[in-house]
Simulated assay, not measured.
Amino acid sequence: MGIKLYHQCGHNAKWNRDSFEKDKVGEGLILSPVHQDRNNIVDLPVALKNKSIFDPQFYLPNSLKPKFKTYDFFPNTIIGEQGFSTIDFSSVAIESANRCVGFQLEQRFEKVIIPARFFEQLNSRYTEQQADLFVVPFLKALRSKGVIGSKDIYLTVPLTSSMVSSKEYIENILNWITSYPEIDGIYFICQHDRKSKQIKEAGFLIEFMKVIKSTYDADLKVLVGYTNTEGMMYTVCGEIDLTIGAFENTRIFSLDKFLVSDEEKRGPKARIYLPKLLNWIRFEEAKLIRDAVPEIWQKIYTPTNYSEEAFELTKEPTFQTPALYKHYFKAYAEQIKVLSQVGKNTRFDILDLWISEAKHNHSLLSQIPFNLDNHGNGEHLDHWSNALNLFKKANP
């Protein structure tokens, strides 16, 4: 079966589409209505939609983001001028489900996604509210349209790190998601608030991997959305599907992108992904290393046609430079391909080797000495190694 990669689309989804269609990276796209209006989605080739997934993104049902208004199934669109409340939405949940299921079927997407609301805090009525407002109405709509059994149905399950770390809370959710025989798979999304771009918390990684493995072991298919480089760690849980994204808000989930804000945000520094460091480093730092210590650069650099293109640009790349992301898509996909071709136990060994090599390569830079910025250094690697070893110990 192997591991499948899907492009988590956001702004500039054309880069993802180019990577999928021209470079043959990934199995398809996960389309994003907060970034792509209805006409944009409808106009996509049917052949592309057949291999892609549409995430309805009901995470914030009262979102005022303008592109949501182009979809007649979005909760706030149906409620219209009345504003949003749980009571209001209960009255339109069935209509929303009928329209949303109808749209996904009309557009002939690969799977049908049942959306869910995102709760930032522990909610004692999590499963009850998700069932009443989404699962029950959507399953009713799917039955009425004769879809069950003919197309994979995935349930969106948005989590937070605090939910994952609460044993009783997460067990309740796991019992709930396995109670629907009509559901074929789970689309996990987990918000892990942190100051660093990489996850530096072994405890979270272990607990989330337990959730993924438990779901997979329950004979449910698993798609883990909004994953950054740590996604490769999740492959030890089974034959799951992962995502790759360009901008950070497609690799790290946050509710912020569903909120309307007048605040102008400064664009981040351009970064390049280096598989042999298991991290993204600032492009300007990469150039310094390449020019000053080519013998070390040769050990840490994995070239693609896109990375070479970025280095050959006469103008310094910015975070809007597509070559940097297309390089990441190719380089990361190659790593996932290696893991996909071996069994679960061998994946532990490969990941352990990659982490050890990355630590060594970071040490080569330290010996110069050359200090990468806080987001580009190797501080996350010990946490990954600890998580991997402890998870393996508990799951021999």
Rank of each mutant, 00 (worst) to 15 (best):
2 G>E: 03
13 A>D: 08
13 A>I: 13
14 K>S: 15
15 W>L: 09
19 S>H: 05
20 F>S: 04
20 F>G: 02
21 E>S: 13
22 K>M: 08
24 K>R: 15
31 L>D: 04
34 V>H: 06
41 I>L: 13
44 L>E: 12
51 K>N: 14
52 S>I: 05
54 F>H: 11
56 P>I: 06
59 Y>E: 03
60 L>D: 03
60 L>I: 12
65 K>T: 08
68 F>V: 09
68 F>R: 03
70 T>N: 11
72 D>H: 13
74 F>G: 08
78 I>M: 00
85 S>M: 13
85 S>A: 05
86 T>L: 15
87 I>Y: 13
88 D>C: 02
90 S>H: 07
92 V>Q: 05
98 N>V: 06
98 N>Y: 09
98 N>A: 12
102 G>C: 11
103 F>D: 13
108 R>S: 11
108 R>H: 10
115 P>W: 07
118 F>M: 05
121 Q>T: 12
123 N>Q: 06
127 T>L: 04
128 E>C: 00
131 A>S: 14
132 D>F: 06
132 D>H: 09
133 L>M: 14
137 P>T: 09
138 F>E: 10
139 L>A: 05
141 A>R: 08
143 R>K: 15
143 R>S: 15
144 S>P: 00
150 S>F: 11
152 D>W: 01
152 D>G: 06
152 D>A: 11
159 L>Y: 01
161 S>V: 00
161 S>I: 00
166 S>Y: 02
169 Y>N: 03
175 N>Y: 09
180 Y>N: 01
181 P>T: 08
181 P>D: 06
184 D>A: 01
190 C>M: 01
193 D>T: 03
194 R>D: 09
194 R>C: 04
199 I>P: 00
203 G>Q: 12
204 F>V: 06
205 L>C: 01
206 I>G: 02
209 M>A: 12
209 M>S: 11
211 V>I: 11
212 I>H: 02
217 D>N: 12
220 L>F: 09
225 G>R: 06
229 T>W: 00
229 T>M: 04
237 C>V: 07
241 D>I: 04
241 D>E: 14
243 T>P: 10
244 I>P: 00
249 N>L: 06
252 I>F: 07
259 L>H: 04
260 V>R: 01
261 S>V: 07
262 D>F: 02
263 E>Q: 03
263 E>C: 01
266 R>E: 13
273 Y>K: 04
273 Y>H: 09
277 L>D: 05
284 E>S: 14
284 E>L: 05
285 E>K: 12
288 L>Q: 12
288 L>W: 09
292 A>D: 13
302 T>H: 08
303 P>Y: 03
304 T>S: 15
305 N>C: 02
305 N>E: 15
306 Y>V: 01
311 F>P: 07
313 L>G: 04
314 T>H: 14
316 E>P: 01
318 T>A: 09
320 Q>K: 10
321 T>P: 10
327 H>N: 10
328 Y>V: 02
328 Y>A: 10
331 A>S: 15
334 E>Y: 05
349 D>H: 10
352 D>H: 15
361 N>V: 11
363 S>G: 00
363 S>F: 03
364 L>I: 03
368 I>L: 15
379 E>L: 08
381 L>G: 08
390 L>T: 10
391 F>C: 08
393 K>D: 10
393 K>R: 14
